[in-house]
Amino acid sequence: MVPFLNKVASEIMNLDQKLSPLRKGLLEFLVLKIVSGTTVYVADILKRLAGTEFATQEGTLYPLLSKLRREGLVDYEWQESEAGPPRKYYRLTSAGQAQLAELDDYWARINKTISELGN
């Protein structure tokens, strides 16, 4: 009985760890989605994600944005801010828009597959 309970407890604890790579993989998709709306500043992205399952931090977001920029999916421009130094405002490039559309499509298909398998 006790080993069984231990197993259940560790499964529950492991679930969050198991889902962590999934969340991490989806983060890129979500960031592209947020950037697609308007030009945004990093604090805006963090605010939009805070409170969701995808809440993240600067330490993760800056390297991710830098990677997306290198891949030509997003770009930034400097804008003066009312207080403090100029800030980087990110926007989606046309390549980024194309990839976001693809991702949206792909996500829809995944969802469909999951719900069909469930029934």
Binding site: S20, E58, G59, P63, L64
Partner: peptide, 26 residues
Amino acid sequence: EDMGPVDGATPTAAAGPAPTPGASAG
């Protein structure tokens, strides 16, 4: 603490939209 650990995933490790097991948590 607010900044969080810096994610050192190399550009090649996280290529593509699907979550690759190689590029995991920070």
